[in-house]
């Protein structure tokens, strides 16, 4: 097989070498056209896309954690607000209770006083009526007694005893 090398050691291989080199270069050009350029382009695009995706993922993760923080903050805020509201309501309820009780007490004492006053008034009225009645009755009695016996000593004692009794009643 190697005999042909020895025979033609004088520029015989230029044709072969040209053929080999040219066919290799043509192959390289075809591969570049058909596969290499699209593949490397796609690989570059993919690398970019992955880098972008990683960045975007990082960003959205950050956003999500920010949102979670906000939510947590809002939640604790609303919790304290709720407890404030409850406390306020309790306080105002307490106040209202106190005023209601005080009002009721005032009213009750007012009623009591009024009632006492009324009772007093009525007693006074009753006493007055009784006094006038007593006077009338005593006059009638007196007239009756007078019709029976009219001695001055007896009359005097009777009137005195009446008046005394009246004074006792009035006090």
């Amino acid at each position: 097989m190697l005999s042909h090398l020895i025979i033609g050691a004088s520029g015989l291989y230029l044709g072969d070498m040209l053929f080999i080199a040219i066919s290799f270069l043509v192959l390289m050009a075809l591969i570049a056209l058909v596969a290499w350029n699209p593949i490397t382009k796609m690989m570059g695009e993919r690398a970019n896309k992955i880098a972008n995706d990683i960045d975007t993922a990082e960003k959205s993760r950050q956003e999500a954690s920010d949102l979670a923080d906000q939510r947590r903050e809002a939640l604790s805020h609303s919790r304290s607000e709720a407890s404030d509201i409850v406390a306020d309501a309790k306080q105002s309820g307490e106040k209202q209770r106190a005023t209601i009780v005080a009002d009721a007490q005032n009213e009750a004492t007012q009623y009591k006083q009024n009632a006492r006053k009324d009772i007093e008034q009525e007693r006074q009225d009753a006493l007055k009526n009784v006094q006038s009645d007593v006077a009338d009755i005593s006059v009638q009695i007196a007239s009756k007694i007078i019709k029976k016996q009219l001695d001055p000593e007896g009359q005097q004692a009777l009137i005195n005893s009446y008046i005394e009794g009246l004074g006792k009643h009035e006090s």
Binding site: H4, G8, L12, Y13, G15, D16, F19, I20, S23, F24
Partner: peptide
């Protein structure tokens, strides 16, 4: 001169 064996194989 072309060596047909080489060139065909290539």
């Amino acid at each position: 001169t072309f060596n047909v064996a080489n060139d065909l194989s290539v």
